[in-house]
Design a protein around this nucleic acid. Sequence first.
DNA 1: AAGTAAAACGGAATCGTTATTATTTACAAA
DNA 2: TTTGTAAATAATAACGATTCCGTTTTACTT
Lengths: 137, 137
Amino acid sequence: MNMEEALVILKQKGYKYTQKRKDILSYFDQEDGYRSAKDLLNFMEPSYPGISFDTIYRNLHLFDELAILESTELEGEKLFRISCVGHHHHHFICKQCGITKEIETCPMDNVKGELGGFQVEDHKFEIYGRCPSCQAS
Amino acid sequence: MNMEEALVILKQKGYKYTQKRKDILSYFDQEDGYRSAKDLLNFMEPSYPGISFDTIYRNLHLFDELAILESTELEGEKLFRISCVGHHHHHFICKQCGITKEIETCPMDNVKGELGGFQVEDHKFEIYGRCPSCQAS
DNA sequence: AAGTAAAACGGAATCGTTATTATTTACAAA
DNA sequence: TTTGTAAATAATAACGATTCCGTTTTACTT
């Protein structure tokens, strides 16, 4: 997912095309990991002094619904990153800087047999630790 | 993990043996799934009118540290269940009633190869859906 | 250019959780 | 059995993340 694709999706669905939304998208486009609402606010604040959390969260959730962003939850905080569209995947997440690495392995294939009678709706597989760069510092 | 084992652990580590703690343990002993601080408070309230959230959380965290309980986090809420001691495992969690089913499959063995240079500290694998009983209702 | 529906503002409210301080209790040692 | 003390609790306030609400502003339509 890149900015142009994201903007096309917004247009298609009839959502407005505001400078704030462009800036939000450019933020996640340049980052390569999970970021919080607070992180985004800090990025936006200089350009839009007094921008409200309402605006931040409304757009994060909109982008999440439109699959422009994907989200997870860690230690009581929702985190967002630009969507790795297309294939099913999971993530390694660096606990220090939030950077992510895609994991291709999905355990669900090996698990089906254990779940007779249980109706599976969703699953979460995440690995936490330190990325090479954070280990060095 | 059962109540007797839990009480032995408490004794061993020099923690006090209060009626409230016995009741908290008996609650998780009789339940078979993830429960919230609020759930526990509702259970305790009739016997201890005015029991504080502080007491609830302090004991939940203590039991979590002592591995008497295990915990996870779902939709912004911490959840606790009696510990399935001994072997490494994961859970299917019913989104309706919180009941759990142990999953023996662990994906970490198949993933090691993908993570060269990344230092793994932890991982989470959970499956969400409806248990047979909740599907019926 | 005017109308309108969506977006944003700004502040307050809510939710789950944690911290603070004073009081009470369980347990052990005298 | 009494007493000392460290642990546990109550009561309340604070906290961070998130959501809600009434109003104002803005992007886009006609």
